[in-house]
Lab assay of single mutants.
Amino acid sequence: QRITLKDYAMRFGQTKTAKDLGVYQSAINKAIHAGRKIFLTINADGSVYAEEVKDGEVKPFPS
């Protein structure tokens, strides 16, 4: 399943989102408010992988 960072954070909370991605909650808040195009893939085992689309390139998040 693929979902935006904002939607994932709204569904699970910023604290869990940060923990799942290995970053601080403040980084999640800042990324959402900056309007960054970050998409999360939720794997069947429950693990989460995030990618950011920037300038036409897709890069892992966090980099």
Rank of each mutant, 00 (worst) to 15 (best):
Q1K: 10
Q1M: 14
Q1L: 13
R2I: 10
R2G: 07
R2K: 13
R2M: 09
I3H: 07
I3M: 15
T4P: 15
T4N: 07
T4K: 08
L5S: 00
L5E: 00
L5W: 01
L5P: 00
K6M: 10
K6A: 14
K6T: 09
K6Y: 12
K6V: 12
D7W: 06
D7M: 08
D7C: 11
Y8H: 03
Y8D: 00
Y8W: 04
Y8G: 01
A9V: 15
A9Y: 11
A9P: 00
A9D: 02
A9M: 12
M10S: 12
M10N: 13
M10A: 14
M10W: 09
R11I: 14
R11W: 10
F12Y: 13
F12T: 02
G13L: 03
G13H: 01
G13V: 01
Q14K: 12
Q14D: 10
T15C: 14
T15D: 14
K16Q: 11
K16D: 03
K16W: 02
K16V: 05
T17P: 02
T17V: 07
T17A: 11
T17H: 01
T17D: 01
A18G: 05
A18Q: 03
A18F: 02
A18Y: 02
A18W: 03
K19W: 09
D20N: 06
D20Q: 10
D20K: 07
D20F: 04
L21M: 04
L21W: 01
G22L: 04
G22Q: 07
G22K: 09
V23P: 02
Y24N: 15
Y24V: 13
Y24Q: 15
Y24L: 13
Y24G: 15
Q25P: 15
Q25C: 09
S26W: 15
S26V: 10
A27S: 11
I28A: 01
I28P: 00
I28L: 08
N29S: 14
N29K: 13
N29A: 15
N29E: 15
N29Y: 15
N29D: 13
K30S: 14
A31P: 01
A31R: 01
A31F: 09
I32E: 02
I32Y: 02
I32T: 03
I32G: 01
I32K: 01
I32C: 03
I32S: 01
H33M: 15
H33E: 14
A34P: 02
A34C: 11
A34N: 10
A34H: 10
A34T: 12
G35P: 03
G35C: 08
G35D: 13
R36S: 07
R36E: 04
K37M: 13
I38R: 00
I38H: 00
I38A: 00
I38E: 00
I38G: 00
F39C: 07
F39H: 05
F39K: 02
L40F: 03
L40W: 00
L40K: 00
T41P: 00
T41K: 06
I42A: 04
I42S: 04
I42P: 04
N43Q: 13
A44Y: 10
A44K: 10
D45H: 05
D45S: 06
D45C: 05
D45G: 05
G46M: 06
G46Y: 05
G46F: 06
G46D: 05
S47W: 06
S47C: 07
S47E: 07
S47K: 11
V48P: 02
V48G: 01
Y49R: 10
Y49K: 10
Y49V: 11
Y49N: 09
A50L: 03
A50W: 03
A50C: 04
A50I: 03
A50D: 00
A50E: 00
E51I: 11
E51Y: 10
E51M: 08
E51H: 09
E51T: 09
E51K: 05
E52R: 02
E52D: 03
V53D: 11
V53R: 06
V53M: 12
K54E: 13
K54D: 12
D55A: 09
D55G: 11
D55Y: 08
D55H: 10
G56E: 07
E57M: 13
E57A: 11
V58D: 04
V58K: 08
V58N: 08
V58G: 05
V58H: 08
V58T: 13
K59P: 03
K59G: 11
K59L: 13
P60L: 07
P60R: 11
P60D: 05
F61H: 02
P62E: 05
P62H: 04
P62F: 04
S63K: 10
S63A: 12
S63C: 11
S63H: 11
S63E: 12
